[in-house]
Simulated scan of single mutants.
Amino acid sequence: MFVSLFCTLKSVSNEVKKWRPVGADRGFTFLQYNLTIAYHRTNLLARYGRWSANSNGGVLETLGFKEGFRVDVDVPESTWMQAPGFHDILILNTGHWWWAPSKFDPVKSPMLFFKKDQPIIPPLPPDRGLDMVLEHMIPYVEERERSGAIKFFRTQSPRHFEGGDWDQGGSCQRNQPLSTEQVEELFSVKNNGTNVEVRLVNEHLYKALKGSSFKILDITRMSEFRADAHPSTAGGKKHDDCMHWCLPGITDTWNDLFIELLNSIKGRS
């Protein structure tokens, strides 16, 4: 979405300077309009890092944990910690990594959640950990946002692996959009398929955002149909890339939707 937005803006103005706000992975300022856009990479929104058992023991050690990933549910990742106080428009999202056994193996390297610098006991499953992170990160932004800021939370970008996950021989070889029936077969929570995390995470997002001042940027449903819009074998990976999107493509439509929502909000103000 960020790359698509940059390309759209650059088609209007070539007076661009590379400049990154604190923590941003990428950033550009369009000098003619004094407009800065930035991409702050964060996988879980919350701060996380490797955890290993202490030789002196501890609560987690007594439960048999030897290693894993510590996730501080009440501390934002440093990459975006200062973003709410800098940007006038924010688009947040999180999701794929919460249901990623290849990243956080539930046995060998589980997610271990901490709050106020102490492990949460009993240990939480990832879905409950996601709830707690959202419970803390949403008000974190609201308490630090700039005056008049507009905030969106983007729903999940669907993957389209068929026949297994990315490391299990899964592929995406379709050359046309899915039918409604095919979408339900691939993404239905009841089927518990490879790509089920899309709707599962969205359920948690909608619940957490209820009553907040965030606007929801729902890109999921339209994107579920586009199994044909991924790089697939042209992604330059050893496996089919069924998660990222081709450009030009569906992410341009996401930005069209974003601009329409932005205009409707500004029109009411």
Rank of each mutant, 00 (worst) to 15 (best):
H87R: 10
P110H: 09
P106V: 06
E143I: 07
M111I: 13
H160C: 03
L112D: 08
G163A: 01
G163S: 02
Q118F: 06
L92V: 11
E145P: 01
K108Q: 14
E142Q: 12
V107T: 12
S157V: 05
S157R: 05
D167E: 06
F161I: 03
D127V: 08
D105A: 13
I138E: 05
P101W: 15
F113M: 13
H160R: 00
F104D: 13
W97G: 10
W98E: 12
H160D: 09
P122Y: 06
I120A: 06
I138F: 02
R146T: 07
V107P: 05
L130A: 08
G164M: 07
G95Q: 09
G148E: 06
V133P: 10
L90D: 10
S102I: 12
R144H: 08
G170K: 01
P123I: 04
T94S: 15
S147V: 04
D131P: 05
T155N: 02
T155R: 04
E145G: 01
Q156Y: 00
K116C: 10
L92S: 13
S147G: 01
A149Y: 03
S109V: 10
Q156P: 01
P125L: 13
Q156S: 13
F86T: 15
L90M: 15
P101D: 15
S109Y: 14
G129N: 11
D127F: 08
M132Q: 13
R128N: 02
R144D: 02
G164S: 05
G163Q: 03
E143K: 12
D117A: 13
P101T: 14
K116A: 14
G129I: 14
G148W: 03
Q168S: 12
A149E: 05
G129D: 12
D165Q: 02
K151H: 02
T155I: 01
M137S: 09
Q118Y: 05
E142Y: 02
P125W: 10
E143L: 07
N93C: 13
W98I: 12
F161M: 05
V141R: 02
G170F: 02
L134N: 07
G170Y: 03
R128I: 14
W99V: 11
F161C: 01
R159D: 11
H136E: 15
P126Q: 11
P158Q: 00
L134F: 05
D165P: 00
Q118T: 09
P158M: 00
P123V: 05
G163H: 02
W166R: 09
K116F: 10
P110K: 07
V107H: 11
V133D: 09
Q168C: 04
Q118R: 12
I91A: 10
K103E: 15
G163C: 03
L124A: 08
F114V: 14
P122H: 08
R146E: 05
P139A: 14
L130H: 06
P126E: 13
P110W: 12
R146H: 00
M137K: 00
R146S: 01
T94E: 12
L130I: 08
H96D: 13
D88R: 12
W97D: 13
L124K: 09
P125H: 11
L112F: 08
H136R: 03
H96K: 15
V133L: 04
M132H: 09
E143W: 02
Y140G: 04
V133Y: 04
G148N: 04
P122T: 11
E142F: 00
G169N: 01
H87K: 10
S102Q: 14
F104E: 11
